[in-house]
């Protein structure tokens, strides 16, 4: 097990957003998270890379790193947790003052202090992998949404994270651009990246996931293989949710 989470809880003031979450993330597998708006999906993802710090809970990594959030964790530990994962945002959040290539090389060169020539080659091959070989010197505002998101994926991959996190990577995109981003993510799944993906794309989740997790109101309502959770859900709330997004009236 890459990461085992026990008793994760997070509140914003009085609002309990995550309640006693237990979760296992398996190495080389894809976990998709679905659920209605406000159910806590983004918050869960952000807890995984310390953009939010949980109030309670224990994270145990395969490599021995254990973080107990019941007491305040140190800055170093938060950084250690954060550096395990790469994040792809719904709104891309590319650095507008840097070219596609510079967006990708920034982490490895500045943070990881890797060799510039090697990083440049790596970045070029990553951008080629996401289909942007001929766009490497363009600035984000010169790219379409789908292209920006693919740069976002390359940027996250460049730091060679153990875990890739995606927060609704296609929900800001025009319908005709969604496919190109999903294709890239499917390729990553085939390469056995460990990934956690928040998505509303049912068909995509079905194709790409090893496990689907359905959240509602801060709880994990149901989890299991996609063919169970998405085709034959046991819980009423999952059924209702899938009904709603598959047949929007």
């Amino acid at each position: 097990m890459f990461l085992t989470i026990n008793g994760l809880a997070k509140a914003f003031g009085d609002l309990e957003v995550l309640k006693d979450i237990d979760l296992e993330i398996e190495k080389g597998k894809v976990l998709s998270i679905m659920g209605p708006s406000g159910s806590g999906k983004t918050t869960l993802l952000r807890c995984l890379n310390a953009l939010e710090l949980p109030d309670n809970g224990v994270f145990s990594f395969e490599d021995g790193l254990t973080l107990n959030f019941d007491k305040k964790i140190s800055k170093q530990d938060a950084l250690r947790l954060r550096r395990k994962s790469g994040m792809v945002f719904q709104s891309y959040n590319l650095f507008p003052h840097k070219t596609a290539l510079e967006n990708v090389t920034e982490g490895p060169i500045i943070v990881q202090k890797r060799n510039k020539t090697e990083v440049r080659e790596l970045a070029e091959s990553l951008l080629e992998k996401v289909g942007l070989k001929d766009k490497i010197n363009l600035y984000p505002h010169q790219l379409s949404g789908g292209q920006q998101q693919r740069v976002g994926i390359a940027r996250a991959l460049a730091i060679e994270p153990e875990l890739m996190l995606f927060d609704e990577p296609t929900s800001a995109l025009d319908p005709e651009l969604i496919g190109e981003v999903l294709t890239v993510i499917k390729d990553l799944a085939r390469e056995n990246w460990t990934m956690v993906i928040v998505t509303h794309e049912v068909q995509f989740a079905e194709q790409v996931s090893d496990k689907v997790l359905f959240m509602d109101n801060g709880y994990i309502v149901e989890q299991g293989p996609p063919e169970e959770v998405l085709k034959d859900p046991k819980e009423k709330r999952t059924q209702q949710f899938l009904q709603r997004i598959l047949n929007p009236s």
Binding site: A50, F95, G107
Partner: peptide, 25 residues
């Protein structure tokens, strides 16, 4: 805020994020 967060997710500390990502913008 997304710019700070993107900087953090590629491993930057607050100081590095300020210097490399926020101040230039």
């Amino acid at each position: 805020k997304g710019q700070w967060e993107a900087a953090y997710t590629i491993g930057m500390t607050q100081n590095t994020a300020l210097k490399r990502i926020i101040l230039p913008q």
